[in-house]
């Protein structure tokens, strides 16, 4: 993994709440290479967003604490940088796109102001230069008539346009990595596709690497090179998008795939949801966290937590899964 742009190793983040300590992210490792798009997939509350926020060191203090691990970005561990050095990384080297375009933009500051401040601070542009660049950026993300749009406010923008504006903001300082936290979840389906296409196009053109956080496997299939599936704060399966789709080796990944309607397969009478709820992160069992919802469970699962191990009979790319019964998971898939 020498060529990784961002190499996250054994990251653990905990929240102290009244109910107890929540292990939101528990010993998670993944990496993003230059120019690549990596997905982080899972249900709500599985620790996807917290992973990204931990890397940016934006986890809500003092409840949330990063308790261990490293996040090596271009040779520096972000988790040990001092606050000022970290500030220079945020927005400049790693930018973030948030889920809610409605609430993630400041309602009392103009679009122009919010676009130019990063340029002024990180790139030392004069207000005039920054303004010119901001107009360019708005044009680049497909907002017509950017000059007229700059003095407007977020409430004068539609949801899709606000997310375009967020993308423009993220791209403004030409970062080498963008963390996109469910960038399309709050948008209409038609707009979602537009935004994703835009992000894909821009990231390819500008060579920006992207971490795409999503619960939508459709998005993953189309836009990600590699995929990390998270469950209850841990990564349970990791591999290329192609591998994971064609050859899922964890019952949870399989369940996720089955619960998504597919147009390229004969129409089944009903979707197969994953029964039950994700576990309480304050009281994780000793064994596998997915156990109560798993159709493949054996006695060993309740005693010992399965480690992430390479899966047998796969292609050249590494593919790992945390399941004692990984072999049987394939069998199921093939007989379907």
């Amino acid at each position: 993994m020498a060529d990784a742009l961002l190499d996250v190793r054994h990251l653990s983040t905990r929240f102290t709440t009244r109910e107890g300590v929540v292990r939101a992210v528990d010993d998670v490792s993944w990496d993003v290479k230059e120019g690549e798009t990596v997905a982080l997939v899972g249900e709500s509350g599985c620790g996807k967003s917290v992973s990204a926020l931990s890397i940016m060191r934006l986890v809500a203090q003092p409840a949330g604490q990063i308790v261990g691990g490293q996040a090596v970005f271009k040779g520096r561990d972000l988790l040990t940088l001092d606050e000022e050095a970290m500030r220079r990384v945020r927005g400049r080297e790693i930018a973030m796109i948030f889920q809610e375009p409605m609430t993630s933009l400041n309602p009392v500051l103009s679009i122009g102001r919010q676009l130019t401040e990063g340029l002024e601070i990180h790139l030392g542009k004069t207000p005039q230069q920054a303004r010119g660049r901001a107009a360019e950026l708005l044009g680049m993300v497909g907002i017509p008539d950017p000059e007229r749009r700059l003095p407007q406010y977020p409430h004068q923008f539609s949801g899709g346009m606000r997310q375009r504006m967020m993308i423009a903001m993220a791209l403004s300082c030409e970062p080498s990595l963008i963390l996109a936290d469910e960038p399309t979840t709050a948008l209409d389906v038609t707009i979602q596709a537009q935004i994703l296409e835009l992000m894909k196009d821009l990231s390819r053109r500008l060579g920006v690497a992207m971490l795409m956080i999503t619960h939508n496997l459709g998005v993953v299939a189309r836009y990600a090179d590699r995929v990390n599936v998270m469950y209850a704060g841990r990564i349970i399966e990791q591999g290329t998008a192609r591998e994971l789709y064609g050859n899922p080796r964890h019952p949870y990944t399989l369940g996720l795939l089955r619960s998504v309607p597919r147009l390229d397969e004969p129409r089944r009478s009903r979707l197969a949801p994953i029964d039950g709820q994700p576990p309480d992160l304050t009281r994780l069992p000793a064994g596998c966290a997915f156990l109560p919802r798993c159709a493949f469970r054996v006695d060993r699962c309740s005693v010992e937590r399965p480690p992430l191990v390479p899966v047998a009979h796969t292609g050249p790319e590494p593919h790992v899964s945390a399941c004692w019964e990984a072999e049987r998971v394939i069998a199921r898939q093939e007989t379907r």
Binding site: L58, R87, G91, S104, N106, G118, I121, H122
Partner: peptide, 9 residues
């Protein structure tokens, strides 16, 4: 949070 993620002072 957005403002902090932008690396503002």
């Amino acid at each position: 949070r957005t403002a902090r993620a932008k690396g503002l002072w």
